[in-house]
């Protein structure tokens, strides 16, 4: 469920040249052409959607490299 919400935001804000069905949980988003600027858009949209704030230590490509890694970070932030 959380993965699908993340996926929608990634597709919308990342403006990736593929449709949502082609973005699997573990697909490397940067390999699909995700830029740093659009990653910031994704981050801000996720913060709005889940009412969380990414701490500095999570602001890295590793956090945003896939739907799964983002969803895991969101779950941790919501739990804490």
């Amino acid at each position: 469920m959380i993965n699908d919400r993340v996926r929608q935001i990634v597709i919308q804000q990342g403006q990736l040249p593929v449709d949502a069905s082609q973005v699997a949980d573990t697909t490397d988003l940067y390999a699909l052409g995700l830029s740093s600027l659009r990653t910031v858009n994704i981050m801000l949209a996720l913060e709005d959607e889940f009412d969380v704030e990414f701490p500095d230590e999570l602001l890295s490509r590793r956090t945003f490299e896939s739907v799964l890694s983002i969803a895991e970070a969101i779950e941790d932030l919501v739990d804490n």
């Binding site: 740093s36 990653t39 910031v40 801000l44 990414f54 500095d56 890295s60 490509r61």
Partner: peptide
């Protein structure tokens, strides 16, 4: 914060 995020995400 947005500027810092951009920088960290581009740092690779």
């Amino acid at each position: 914060r947005e500027e810092r995020a951009f920088h960290q995400l581009a740092a690779k």
